[in-house]
Lab assay of single mutants.
Amino acid sequence: IQIFEKGDFSGQMYETTEDCPSIMEQFHMREIHSCKVLEGVWIFYELPNYRGRQYLLDKKEYRKPIDWGAASPAVQSFRRI
């Protein structure tokens, strides 16, 4: 998965294949504004440590949070399923 600090795949980008319990600790990001799921299925969580509201992401590109069903870019953790 590739995660971006700004919408439309702009700003700082990080790519990982590992679960992330805290985007702040692992990537020094506060929010995720866009992402590209390159393979597999992932779950975004609103809070750290896989808690809070969940969003299921299939293999595709998400230009903004509304594309994965979120009203805001408040994603604090994610993991692959």
Rank of each mutant, 00 (worst) to 15 (best):
I1N: 00
I1K: 01
I1F: 10
I1W: 00
I1T: 03
Q2P: 00
Q2D: 06
Q2C: 12
I3L: 08
I3W: 07
I3K: 00
F4N: 03
F4L: 00
F4Y: 05
F4D: 00
E5W: 10
E5D: 06
G7W: 07
G7N: 03
G7H: 11
G7A: 12
D8R: 14
D8C: 14
D8H: 14
F9C: 13
F9W: 08
F9H: 13
F9Q: 12
S10K: 10
S10R: 08
S10A: 07
S10D: 04
S10N: 14
G11Q: 09
G11Y: 05
G11R: 04
G11S: 13
G11M: 13
Q12A: 08
Q12S: 11
Q12P: 11
Q12H: 07
Q12C: 05
Y14M: 03
Y14F: 09
Y14C: 08
E15H: 05
E15M: 03
T16Q: 05
T16V: 07
T16L: 13
T17W: 11
T17M: 06
T17P: 14
E18V: 10
E18A: 05
E18D: 04
E18R: 08
D19W: 08
D19R: 08
C20Y: 07
C20W: 06
C20A: 09
C20T: 05
C20Q: 09
P21R: 05
P21E: 08
P21A: 07
S22V: 11
S22N: 10
S22M: 05
S22T: 05
S22D: 14
S22P: 00
I23K: 01
I23A: 10
I23Q: 02
I23V: 10
I23Y: 11
I23G: 04
M24T: 10
M24N: 15
M24V: 09
M24P: 05
E25R: 08
Q26T: 06
Q26G: 12
Q26W: 10
Q26P: 08
Q26E: 14
F27T: 06
F27C: 05
H28A: 13
H28D: 12
H28Q: 12
M29P: 13
M29D: 12
M29K: 09
M29I: 08
M29F: 12
M29Y: 11
M29C: 15
M29R: 12
M29V: 12
R30M: 13
E31Q: 11
E31Y: 15
E31G: 11
E31T: 14
E31M: 07
E31N: 09
I32P: 13
I32L: 11
I32Y: 02
H33K: 04
H33W: 13
H33R: 07
H33A: 07
H33F: 14
H33T: 13
S34H: 01
S34Y: 01
S34D: 00
S34R: 01
K36P: 00
K36W: 15
K36R: 11
V37A: 14
V37F: 07
V37I: 04
V37T: 10
L38R: 10
L38G: 11
L38I: 04
L38T: 11
E39P: 03
E39C: 07
E39I: 08
E39W: 06
E39A: 13
E39G: 08
G40E: 11
G40R: 02
V41F: 10
V41S: 08
V41E: 06
V41K: 13
V41H: 09
W42Q: 00
I43D: 02
I43T: 14
I43F: 10
I43L: 11
F44E: 00
F44D: 00
Y45E: 01
Y45M: 01
Y45D: 00
E46H: 06
L47A: 06
L47V: 01
P48G: 04
P48N: 05
P48L: 02
P48W: 01
P48C: 04
N49Y: 07
N49R: 05
N49C: 05
Y50H: 05
Y50G: 02
Y50L: 02
Y50S: 01
R51P: 00
R51A: 09
R51Q: 07
G52D: 01
G52P: 00
G52C: 01
G52V: 00
G52L: 01
G52M: 00
R53Y: 04
R53S: 05
Q54S: 11
Q54W: 02
Q54R: 09
Q54P: 03
Q54I: 07
Q54D: 07
Y55R: 13
Y55A: 04
L56G: 13
L56K: 03
L56P: 15
L56W: 13
L57S: 15
L57K: 02
D58E: 14
D58F: 05
D58K: 11
D58G: 12
K59C: 05
K59D: 04
K59M: 04
K59H: 15
K59V: 15
K60W: 04
K60C: 11
K60Y: 15
K60G: 11
E61N: 12
E61Q: 06
E61H: 03
E61S: 02
Y62V: 03
R63P: 05
R63F: 08
K64L: 05
K64V: 10
K64Q: 06
K64R: 04
P65W: 08
P65R: 12
I66L: 09
I66K: 02
I66M: 08
D67P: 04
D67R: 15
D67S: 12
D67G: 05
D67N: 14
D67T: 02
W68A: 03
W68V: 06
G69Q: 03
G69K: 04
G69R: 11
G69D: 04
A70I: 15
A70L: 15
A70G: 14
A70T: 07
A70Q: 06
A70S: 10
A70F: 08
A71W: 11
S72H: 02
P73E: 03
P73G: 02
A74P: 02
A74S: 05
V75W: 05
V75T: 03
V75K: 01
V75D: 01
V75G: 13
V75S: 01
Q76V: 11
Q76W: 01
S77P: 01
F78I: 03
F78P: 00
F78Y: 08
F78V: 07
F78R: 00
R79S: 07
R79G: 02
R79L: 02
R79I: 02
R79Q: 06
R80Y: 00
R80G: 12
R80P: 05
R80W: 12
R80L: 11
R80S: 08
I81E: 11
I81F: 15
I81S: 07
